[in-house]
Design a protein around this nucleic acid. Structure first.
Length: 307
DNA sequence: ACCCAGGGTTGGC
DNA sequence: GCCAACCCTGGG
């Protein structure tokens, strides 16, 4: 067993970070990591080696304690880099805070979101399936389906008495039948998932290409997948490919954006989307995340529900 | 037992 | 552009 621990102090990333807030903010990249005793744990792949990671943080900006366990030796620095990617810790989030401060409509948003960061997927493919699954679904059922998919066809990794499941790769996922997927509770989305997986598997360097493309070009590609409309496409680009300009517009974001900027009007998702790109630019992704969370925590959401 | 909504997308007009 | 249908689980 190769194991150890390292600590990330708040001065090693720029701006704030709150692990618990981030884990529980309902981002559709992946279901929340398993948790006990304030430890969140997940299998992270480093150079194809399974690494069990247990990560904890008492509260905002407290040291991040990262414990790792593996059957073979791996490059610990790469694990650190990957965790920084997943929680977007390389990003200077103060830029977002400054933007919020400069815009009076957004002045209340900061206090509910301090330390909230993107929660990105280690595998873009998992984010794609996960986002397709989120469409017209409930959070509860969405979570269960993704755990079921992992248990059904994900690779099992055993550490001591615990078994963990890694989200399947395209080549494995594609072997699931429509009925098997339906048994995971994904419903009619089963055919979208298989069809999209086939497209991804059959194109060369699909993920690398999307990463390289500009937001707009990437959007035009990703929306070609089945089961991927405007909202899901933006989720995939934001949480799966780190495109900060994406502004996923669901019913809530429509209501909230309308409430803040288009009072008493009926605004289409397309119009909300182009408004967000013009107004928020590179901060659109964070503002979407923050507005959703703000609405949830501030009571605005239940207020908007009644309209 | 019945009804309904749920972080949308698709296909048809 | 608008609108119904789409599976199915959890909650009224």
């Amino acid at each position: 067993m190769f194991s150890g621990e390292f600590i990330v102090y708040f001065n090693e990333y720029v701006g704030d970070f709150d692990l618990i807030l981030t884990m529980n903010s309902g981002q559709t990249s992946q279901p929340p990591w398993k948790m006990d005793d304030n430890n969140y744990y997940e299998i992270i792949l480093i150079d194809n080696i399974d690494v069990l990671v247990k990560i904890s943080q008492e509260k905002l900006n407290d040291p991040l304690i990262v414990k790792y366990f593996s059957k073979e030796e791996f490059n610990v620095e790469k694990l650190r880099t990957k965790l920084f990617y997943i929680f977007d810790l390389d990003y200077n989030i103060n830029e977002v805070y400054d933007f919020l401060e400069e815009n009076s409509q957004l002045s209340d948003v900061y206090e509910f979101n301090r330390g909230l960061r993107l929660f990105k997927s280690q595998f873009p493919f998992e984010c794609i399936i996960s986002s397709i699954c989120s469409a017209n679904n409930s959070i509860k059922r969405w979570t269960k389906s993704l755990y079921d998919i992992r248990r059904f066809c994900g690779r099992s990794v055993v550490f001591g008495k615990d078994t963990y499941y890694v989200f399947p790769r395209e080549e494995v996922f594609i072997n699931m039948s429509l009925d098997e997927l339906k048994n995971c509770g994904v419903g009619y989305r089963n055919k979208y998932m298989l069809n999209s997986t086939e497209k991804i598997r059959d194109s060369i360097d699909f993920h690398e290409n999307i990463f390289k493309l500009s937001y707009k070009k990437a959007y035009n590609e990703i929306i070609k997948l089945e089961g991927v409309g405007p909202k899901v496409a933006d989720c995939i680009l934001l949480y799966g490919y780190n495109k900060h300009e994406a502004y996923p517009v669901d019913v809530w974001i429509n209501r909230i954006t309308t409430y803040l900027y288009f009072k008493n009007q009926k605004v289409s998702n397309g119009k909300i989307s182009s408004f967000a790109h013009e107004t928020f630019g590179m901060y659109a992704g964070y503002i979407q995340l923050y507005l959703f969370n703000y609405a949830r925590l501030s009571g605005l959401m239940s207020k908007l529900k009644e309209i």
